[in-house]
């Protein structure tokens, strides 16, 4: 990998819920334009890591840096405006608003666009993510898969420099998964840096160039995807079963 500028980093970040240490002295860096994959068993602290990056959860210790600035104390809305777009693993749609309006919130506020610019941006994102036919549907009446798609689209509407994707490929057919991978490749190709948490490893490795493994809140392995998947640590966690099967 070329020595790209670091856009996002976590430095020795820890977070506990009561006695449970959910994030344990976690450090990571994301290069500008890089796509990073994250795997790890259920409850390992992957989504919590996103909350720490996006600001929904404050760390007990450690710091988070974005674009060279310490953002540890920054509220989530400012992190979004700065360029961090996140999707929720459990979708949080604005149920009473249409799909189009859901995206408009991101474009108008996170993206800081004018009404007319926001319309353009949202139509482009709807088109790119395949949600255009659903534009005027109330988000509350979407299926789970559509809601996950909306999570990604809404994050994109803010025009993020870093996109955080949390398990958006689960439950898709092979065909759908393939088109999702293409979409994410496009987003990546347009210059957006990505961190993608995903149990569907074959989809993940089609996009990312580096993989990290999280277990009990700590990073236990990191590197080139193939090498990581074959490492002893990963084999031990998944006890010899294929990771794709483990996700089912």
């Amino acid at each position: 990998m070329t020595a790209a500028k670091t856009i996002l980093s976590m430095d020795m970040v820890s977070k506990s819920y009561g006695a449970l240490k959910v994030t344990d002295a976690l450090s990571l860096t994301l290069g500008e334009g890089e796509a990073l994959g994250v795997i790890g068993p259920n409850g390992a602290g992957k989504s919590t890591m996103f909350n720490l990056i996006a600001g929904g959860v404050a760390p007990d210790e450690g710091k988070v840096f974005f674009d060279g600035k310490d953002i540890t104390g920054m509220p989530p809305f400012e992190r979004c405006k700065a360029g961090i777009g996140r999707s929720y693993q459990i979708p949080h749609p604005f149920e009473g608003m249409t799909v189009f309006e859901n995206l408009l919130v991101g474009a108008r506020f996170g993206g800081d666009l004018s009404e007319a610019q926001a319309y353009d941006r949202c139509v482009a994102v709807l088109d790119q993510t395949g949600l255009l036919p659903k534009a005027n549907v109330r988000a509350g009446s979407l299926t789970l898969l559509e809601r996950k798609r909306l999570e990604m689209a809404r994050a994109l509407s803010t025009n993020p420099r870093v996109l955080l994707l949390d398990e958006i490929a689960g439950g898709l057919t092979e065909q759908e998964c393939h088109s999702l991978v293409e979409t994410i490749q496009q987003i990546h190709a347009s210059g957006t840096s990505i961190i993608w948490i995903e149990h569907i490893v074959h989809a993940l490795v089609a996009v990312v160039s580096r993989l990290i493994v999280i277990n009990f809140g700590a990073k236990i392995e990191e590197g080139e995807p193939k090498a990581v998947m074959e490492s002893a640590a990963v084999r031990e966690i998944y006890m010899g079963i294929e990771v794709d099967d483990a996700a089912a």
Partner: peptide, 25 residues
């Protein structure tokens, strides 16, 4: 208005509004 988008968004999900750049406080 623009603020109306934020208000309706907060009505439906406060954390998501915040994640999309709305200063909910």
């Amino acid at each position: 208005s623009r603020q109306g988008l934020a208000l309706t968004a907060i009505r439906d999900s406060e954390p998501a509004s915040e994640s999309l750049g709305v200063n909910t406080y």
